[in-house]
Amino acid sequence: MSVIIGFLFMAAVYLILSRSLLRVIIGTGLLSHGAHLLILTMGGFAGPAPPVVADGVTDYVDPLPQALILTAIVISFGVTAFFLVMAYRAYQELETDNMTLLKGNDEHD
């Protein structure tokens, strides 16, 4: 699991550092996937046990990481959707998706 997380983070960093805006967004998606899997790993694995505590159930898994991942997935879904729409608008207005061309500012030095 740790290897998968590390690989996801690696791919994410590579994509975020690339020039095309779309790749950058995919990179942020992968980064959040890596983070979510990390939460699951950090909660510890307990095999197929259910995340409920009831009478007679002795073998259960910590439900909190699952709740956290659910929240985090929803948030990253929303942010990614917003980011994609923004990238599309930016492409329409600025007529480029190349990050190096988006540099600089027009301040009065």
Partner: peptide, 15 residues
């Protein structure tokens, strides 16, 4: 977005 991903990672480790 990147700093939020870091935040989640850190919370996971803290947990």
């Amino acid at each position: 977005v990147v700093s939020s991903a870091f935040f989640v990672t850190t919370v996971a480790m803290l947990y």
